[in-house]
């Protein structure tokens, strides 16, 4: 049982970081970023290239992943989403754009990196054993780094000027603009930050599970689920959703193992029942 909980926590830390990026973009831009999973994959491949092939230090690879995705996110916001939001009559059009971007990144990743499953050499060797709990050290390191990033993100949102500006933007775009917040600029920063978080997790997880070009879509669906559990556009909700999904997955795989491959079916059905009772998730605010 300890093993199951430890696995759940490890998964949850990664998931929470993915969900944070998605929920940030949603809160600031009201855009559901379909391409989030693809951004994660891209981050994974950048780390694979820098750390796995060039044998540069892992930290450099992580920074490279984060920077690549931040620049990409900023470009996508500046040249695609901003234009469409300005021209479109219905705000749903951004979903079409997001889906298009997802397909485009899928295709680009496939062309650049091929369809093979890629892994890198371990960042840390050895296994941590305590009682009947067995955890490889690299998993502990990755989970620790993920939690560190989450804490850093929360601190930034709470105590720095850009963080305050972004929170104001999420609460009320017009009011923030009237108070002199450069809305367009912080929209750009927020999108870049959200994409960067996706890239960071990709870079972290490539050291453990590896990466292949086909997992973007499934990762996006998982991220959507976490955001739904916690409530869209709420930082705390995304973190809670990530840990809850990680725990459900870990427990489900153990408990439901005897009944075949139905863990995800059970989680989906539970999610729909949960949303029927609590339509805005755990912490979400109702909106129309």
């Amino acid at each position: 049982m300890e093993q199951v909980i430890a696995n759940g926590l490890y998964l949850g830390a990664q998931y929470a970081l993915i969900a944070l990026g998605l929920t940030l973009i949603f809160a600031l831009m009201n855009v559901l970023n379909f391409a989030h999973g693809q951004m994660y994959v891209l981050g994974g491949f950048v780390t694979y290239e820098v750390y796995g092939l060039l044998h540069w230090p892992f930290v450099v690879a992580l920074v490279a992943s984060a920077l690549t995705l931040a620049v990409l996110g900023a470009l996508i916001e500046r040249f695609l989403f901003r234009t469409v939001i300005k021209r479109s009559e219905r705000e749903e059009s951004t979903m079409l754009l997001a889906a298009g971007v997802a397909y485009f990144l899928d295709a680009a990743i496939l062309l650049l990196f091929g369809e093979k499953q890629r892994g890198v050499h371990k960042i840390l060797n050895g296994v941590f054993i305590w009682d009947n709990l067995i955890l490889p050290w690299d998993r502990i390191l990755v989970a620790g780094l993920a939690i560190l990033f989450i804490v850093a993100f929360i601190l930034m949102m709470q105590f720095t000027k850009p963080g305050r500006a972004m929170r104001a933007l999420a609460q009320d775009r017009v009011a923030a603009q009237l108070m002199g917040v450069p809305v367009a600029f912080y929209g750009l920063i927020g999108f870049a930050l959200g994409a960067m978080l996706a890239g960071l997790v990709g870079g972290l997880l490539v050291t453990i599970t590896g990466v292949n070009s086909g997992i973007g879509g499934p990762i996006s669906i998982k991220a959507f689920m976490m955001v739904m559990i916690g409530g869209a556009g709420v930082v705390g909700g995304a973190i809670a959703g990530g840990f809850i999904l990680g725990m459900l997955e870990s427990v489900g795989l153990t408990v439901l193992h005897a009944y075949g491959d139905i863990t995800y079916l059970a989680i989906f059905v539970a999610l729909m029942i949960f949303l029927a009772i609590r339509p805005n998730g755990l912490m979400g605010k109702p909106w129309g």
């Binding site: 949603f26 559901l32 979903m95 959507f224 689920m225 955001v227 739904m228 869209a232 999610l271 729909m272 949303l275 339509p279 805005n280 998730g281 979400g284 909106w287 129309g288």
Partner: peptide, 8 residues
Amino acid sequence: RGVYFAMV
């Protein structure tokens, strides 16, 4: 509503 319905 909105994104929640889309995601579900």
